[in-house]
Simulated scan of single mutants.
Amino acid sequence: MKNHHHIVVLGAGYAGMMATARLARRMRRTNARITLVNPSARFTERLRLHQIAAGRQLADFQIPKLLAGTRVAFVAGTATAIDPRARTVAVDGSPTILRYDTLVYALGSATDTSTVPGADVHCYTLNGPENAARLAARLGGVAAAGGAVTVCGGGLTGVEAATEIAEAHPRLNVTLLSVDEPGSMMGAKARKHLYQALSRLGVTVRAGARVTKVLADSVELADGELVAADVCVWTTGVTVSPLAREAGIATDERGLVLVDATLRSVSHPDIHAIGDAAAIRLAWGQVHGTCQSGIPTGQYTADTIARLLRGKSVKPFRYGYFHQPVSLGRRDAVIQFTHADDTPRRAYLKGRAAIFYKEKLVSSTPLTTYRLHRYMYVTGTLSKGGRATRAM
């Protein structure tokens, strides 16, 4: 291994943190240097942002403390440019240009408010704890007046936001708008429990509703109907950083970095892309961005970099989905177990069993995993997908 090989990780989300913690473990007896770049020193628990939106206080986990004792250098700043030829990264707020030998691109994704007119002006998102906190502050006043909240998007994020808000603020009139049926990816029994929870919490569900415009006090649907909205929460659509495309790194039409079977950029092999920022295609189809899939990509990439630096061969990335965990407020949840391609199995959990499963085995596990890497290797991969991922 070249002396003082410098590995730079861009992004400290679930995938980036996993890659960093595991790289620190892998590289502890080498001269390799690891630098982690992230806009905030606080680790964002994206799995819990709907709780902040509902007014709940969460623990403040500082990234430098999570990585204490690992020799990882943390840079608080936003990556503004990558020069793949010079192998450098410019960081806003940093006086120096970071030079890398290996780059891990883990910039993640955010809710896209650019596709529907008015969404960027009038909607709140769960893009980070600051945005969620602003939503919480607004909801307090609207709840006191018995106002209306409209959540746009019936995916798992939309369902969790709607139920959390409705439970925390019973006086609010909460409406969930969705093109598809909420929970459509789940099996019939899990979906039934999800709908029962929405009904119990007083959430009005409007499936088949396509939003065409967001106004200051309402949401306009495709048929011209106006749905009242003192507060509009936008949870549908995803966008990624333009940094890779602007740097000339090969991306797809959405800006996801195109990678080979080992999660290395097809245009720049010294760049590894993971999590929501990568276009990862397996035998069963393309991986969609979640914490569940992001953490295994970080684990795999850390192991891959370590093996490559030691001149060893690398096996292709394998992954399969295992579950769809959904909070339904603080006192209910549903877990749909899945096949590798994320289609539902027969098995599911609901109620107290699902609450325990999600809290102890899903939401709290990433932080525990990062900490434990200071002492041992801990897997973050629930499933490699079995036969579904063995061959392309």
Rank of each mutant, 00 (worst) to 15 (best):
V287Q: 03
C152Q: 02
E220M: 13
I97Y: 00
V8Q: 07
R390C: 02
L349C: 11
R71T: 07
V326R: 00
V257H: 02
T96N: 12
A302S: 11
L382M: 14
F74I: 08
Y321D: 12
R264Y: 02
A333M: 06
K189D: 15
R206H: 13
A145W: 01
I7V: 15
V142Y: 08
A90T: 14
N173I: 00
S178I: 03
L172A: 00
L139T: 11
Q51N: 01
P84I: 09
C123W: 08
R346Y: 12
A119D: 10
W234D: 10
L156Q: 04
S265P: 04
R374Q: 14
A190W: 06
G311D: 08
I249V: 15
R371Q: 14
D260H: 04
H193Q: 07
A333F: 09
T262N: 11
T20V: 10
A283I: 03
H4E: 14
S327E: 11
S241R: 05
A137H: 11
T113M: 06
L107D: 07
D120L: 03
K384V: 12
T251Y: 04
R330A: 13
T157N: 04
K358N: 05
A106L: 09
A161S: 14
V240K: 06
V211H: 04
P242N: 10
G140P: 00
A41E: 11
T163M: 00
T113G: 04
P182C: 08
P95H: 01
A73T: 15
Y124I: 03
A68C: 02
P366K: 02
